[in-house]
Write a protein that binds this DNA or RNA. Structure first.
Lengths: 166, 166
DNA sequence: CTATACAGTTCAATCATTGAACTAAAGGGA
DNA sequence: TCCCTTTAGTTCAATGATTGAACTGTATAG
């Protein structure tokens, strides 16, 4: 009766969730992005239990999202850093943060704001279309069957329907 | 020893995760978006346990992301639908799906592709700047302190640092 | 010689998840 | 009438995951 693994599902969302879809991982990744990179810093900032942080860091290292690096010898001390895939995840986490900001903002206001270095403006992260650049809404998206579709757990029904529809 | 609640954290990401940050909720929301909206359909598509699906649906209704609607009387049957905040979450989930596609794609290829109805092209969901429209990378984002910043669990260290830095 | 900082490990208690079996309300067919 | 099917759940025992507290080990500072 292990927790169901999403890793083998024929679904990119489920596979992504299998890597970072638990309660703490997104917060850990956000903290690494914000330069909170050491074990005891993460403990202090997040209030996560020590043994659980150990486990989470280990699993994030295993799936390649973060790296463990020595920042000091004598005594040996490690810090954690985002890898390429981890940095690639940051915009997604910012988009989720923006959603939380829209629908569950603390009454005191947003705790963190973001400035786009390239253009210099404070901004909201939004999800947009890679073809035309416009922000996308759920209504404007039509899902179609991809080459890897299959009626396996995670998309048992969905795969069938997409095949039939398109 | 309850699971730590993120709902009171002074952090929009944590508050968002408190609503939909468990293993199954994003998959449920994706399925509702894909018109898999009934209890037994979700059971079949996802392979989630029945009592757990009951709990997840209840908590998603409670936090306002989905709605329960009668689609048939005699006997009364319900289906679940995304609310406004739920539909607003879809692009974020698509962005996470695209990340999974980049870093954990099944060898058979992407199971689902997306077409932007507005422009007619197949596309990758990307996170972009609301000010200039460009896609953003982690390196191009500078976090600054917002009005609601506070040294409370979830951003104990981060809030202090942002105050000091900016 | 003691205190402190850092990065964890170990442990018992509690909570969450799983899968199987069960309930309930109606409709349809023999 | 009786039985089977559909749909949407509930109940239960077993197993895993999470929590918080206490502990370990290495090294520097005073």
């Amino acid at each position: 009766m292990e927790r169901t693994s999403f890793a083998e599902m024929r679904c990119s969302l489920a596979r992504g969730l299998d890597m970072i879809g638990d309660w703490w991982s997104p917060l850990i990744i956000r903290d690494l992005f914000l330069n909170v990179t050491r074990f005891d810093e993460l403990i202090e900032d997040l209030g996560i239990s020590r043994n659980l942080l150990t486990r989470r860091l280990k699993s994030l290292v295993e799936c390649g999202v973060i790296d463990r690096e020595i920042y000091q010898r004598r005594p040996v001390r490690y810090e954690y850093r985002l890898t390429e895939s981890g940095r690639d995840l940051v915009p997604v986490i910012l988009a989720l943060t923006a959603w939380g900001d829209r629908w569950a903002r603390p009454k005191e206001g947003s705790p963190i704001l973001f400035v786009h270095k390239t253009c210099g403006h404070q901004f909201q992260p939004q999800v947009s279309c890679s073809a035309c650049g416009q922000a996308i809404s759920a209504d404007a998206v039509k899902p179609i069957a991809g080459p890897g579709g299959a009626a396996k757990p995670g998309t048992r029904l969905v795969a069938r329907r997409l095949q039939g529809a398109s």
